[in-house]
Simulated scan of single mutants.
Amino acid sequence: MTSSSAPTSAAAVANAFLDLQAADSGNFPRIDQMKLYKLVFYAQAWWLAQKDTPLFEEDVYAWPWGPVVREIYGDFKSAGRDPITHQRATTITKTGTSLLDFRISKPQPPNEEVMSFLKQTWDVHKPFTGIALSNATHAPGEPWTIIKDLHDGDLSDKPLIPVEVIRDVFKGKLVASRQA
C-alpha cells in the first residue's frame, strides 16, 4: 500500500490491543499470535469501511490461517500459541543515507480518535479466541476467502489481500448493518 496519510502503523495498532488487554480486568481469551493478527486485520477492515482510507500503511496478506500483516508476524512469532503479555511490536526507521542507518524503536501510540476506535474494536472482538476469529475470516465472501478462491485454494505464496477488497467487503457489511 502506498498511502502516506494513514493515521498510525500496524505495530502501533498491535501494541494498542495488547495495552487494552493489559488494562482490561474482564474474563476473556487472552491475546495470542492468531488473535492479535486478526484484531489488527479487523481494525484495518472496519476503519476502511468507515473512513474509506487505511488505518495503517502495511499490507495484509492471505496466509493459510487467515489475514496477517507480515511486519507484525515478525515481532510475535516467538510467542507460539502462548498469550502475549510483555512483548510489543517495533518499527524500523531509516535514519540516514548509509545502508546501515536504521533504528528499531517502539512506534508512537495512536492518536485519541484511533484509540477510541480500537477500544470499540477490542470490546467487540475480545470475547473470541484467535481460532474463532480466524474461522470468521474464512467464511464465504470474506476478503481472505475471496483471495483464496482466486488462487484456487493455494495460499502457499501468501498473496496480498488488496485494500480495495477489504474496504468493499466491510463497507458492504456496514451498509447491511445500518439497514437492519
Rank of each mutant, 00 (worst) to 15 (best):
K119M: 09
R70H: 15
I31V: 11
R81G: 11
S105V: 02
Q87P: 00
Y37E: 09
G96N: 01
D52Y: 03
G26R: 14
H125E: 11
Q21E: 15
F117D: 01
A79D: 12
T95D: 10
G141K: 01
Y73Q: 13
W65L: 15
H86K: 12
K77C: 11
Y37D: 06
P67N: 01
H125S: 09
L133G: 06
G74H: 14
T145P: 00
G74Y: 10
P159H: 08
S25M: 08
G96F: 01
I104S: 07
T129L: 08
L39K: 01
A79V: 08
P110C: 10
N135V: 07
K126D: 06
H151M: 07
P107F: 12
P64K: 09
K148W: 05
T129G: 03
P29F: 05
S25A: 15
K77I: 10
Q50W: 14
H151A: 05
I31R: 06
G141A: 03
Q50C: 09
L99V: 01
S134D: 11
A22T: 10
R70W: 12
S98V: 02
K106I: 12
K35A: 11
E58K: 04
I146Y: 12
T121W: 02
A139H: 11
I131A: 14
I84F: 03
Q87F: 02
D75T: 05
Y42M: 04
V40I: 00
S78V: 14
